[in-house]
Computed example of a mutant assay.
Amino acid sequence: MKIISMIPARYGASRFPAKLMQNLAGKSVILRTYEATVATNLFDDVFVVTDSKIIFDEITNNGGKAIMSQKEHESGSDRIAEAVANVDCDIVVNVQGDEPFTERESLQKVLEVFKTDTNKEIDLASLMVEIDDWDEINNPNTVKVIVDQNSFALYFSRSPIPFPRDKNAGAKYYKHKGIYAFRKEALLEFTVLPMQFIEATEKIECIRYLEYGKRIKMVETEIQGVEIDTPEDLEKAKRLWK
């Protein structure tokens, strides 16, 4: 089974423009993420896929591999699907460019899902981490996920799910970590499935898979890390790096 990682990297992020080129302990965020992904030693190859000459040069000038997107894309999945269309691989792992604390343990858990899925019932797998801070649970920048008894995703939302009408009912809240592992065919199919209103409303691309009946296996991890969505996140990452 050939496994590659693609890191979609857009320069003009809406919430924090140019965040991937911000300095994190002497290197850019995107270079830190690329190096961390390579350092897991889990992949046959690792590429950054970008629409930006600045990011492309940042990676290649530091000895890494990068691919320039040929088209404009609405989502990271669309961007990497274009890049892998003619690449020989079975599993594609999408590591978000703003995840400089990407580590081996969590990624390995996600990949194990496919090694035991002999009937190919799983289209993609992703990570979740339990959260109990109500500020984070209510933060729309934190995507939450709920799962069924077999840990397949039921829904993703920027709102608290489930809604805490009864806080003593024992509900657990999970944050969705932005790492996906796809079967290549599921990823390519994503690009021809029209976006529906739920995905467009929440601005969460993996909802499209659920809307079209795809199965997303969620894997729990205890490793939080820091996703850099805001300048405050960057400062937190700098403190954590030290």
Rank of each mutant, 00 (worst) to 15 (best):
N119R: 08
S126G: 14
E211D: 09
E74S: 15
I122W: 03
G76A: 14
S5C: 14
Y209E: 00
V92H: 08
K109Y: 03
I161G: 00
Y174L: 04
M195D: 09
F156N: 00
A153D: 03
T118D: 09
F16R: 10
I122C: 06
S5R: 01
N138M: 13
V192W: 04
D45G: 13
A66V: 04
I204D: 02
D90G: 14
D135T: 07
F163Q: 08
T37D: 03
N94S: 14
Y11T: 06
I198T: 12
I80Y: 11
T191K: 06
E185M: 06
R79T: 10
N139W: 03
K203Y: 04
I161H: 02
A181I: 09
T50W: 13
R10C: 12
A153R: 06
D133T: 02
P160H: 14
D233Y: 11
L193N: 11
E185N: 13
H73M: 01
I137D: 02
I146Y: 00
E222K: 15
K236E: 13
H176E: 13
Y173Q: 09
Q70F: 00
E112M: 10
K214C: 10
E227T: 01
N23P: 02
I80N: 12
V46R: 08
E185P: 07
R239V: 09
N150G: 02
K203H: 13
F197L: 10
E130K: 15
A36P: 08
Q22Y: 03
I228Y: 06
F43T: 04
A81I: 11
N139R: 07
V95K: 00
V95E: 00
Y174N: 05
S157H: 10
G64I: 10
Y155C: 10
E202C: 05
I146V: 15
V143Q: 00
E72W: 11
Q196E: 12
A181F: 01
K27E: 13
F156D: 00
A9R: 03
A85C: 02
S14E: 06
S159E: 13
K120T: 12
T230A: 08
N139M: 04
R79V: 04
T221I: 11
Q70V: 12
D88C: 03
P231R: 13
K71A: 10
F101D: 00
G63R: 09
V87L: 05
D90Y: 02
E35K: 15
D90A: 03
E103C: 09
T50R: 14
D133N: 15
G170A: 10
K53C: 01
A169M: 12
W241T: 10
N61T: 07
C89T: 11
E232R: 15
I207G: 04
R32A: 08
A186T: 15
Q70E: 13
P8E: 04
I204K: 12
V192H: 14
A66P: 04
V46M: 11
Q196N: 11
K144D: 01
I146R: 09
I204P: 09
K27C: 03
T33R: 07
G76Y: 07
I146F: 01
S126V: 08
G64A: 08
E121D: 15
S14Q: 11
G26L: 08
L111R: 06
L193E: 08
V29C: 02
L20H: 01
D135A: 04
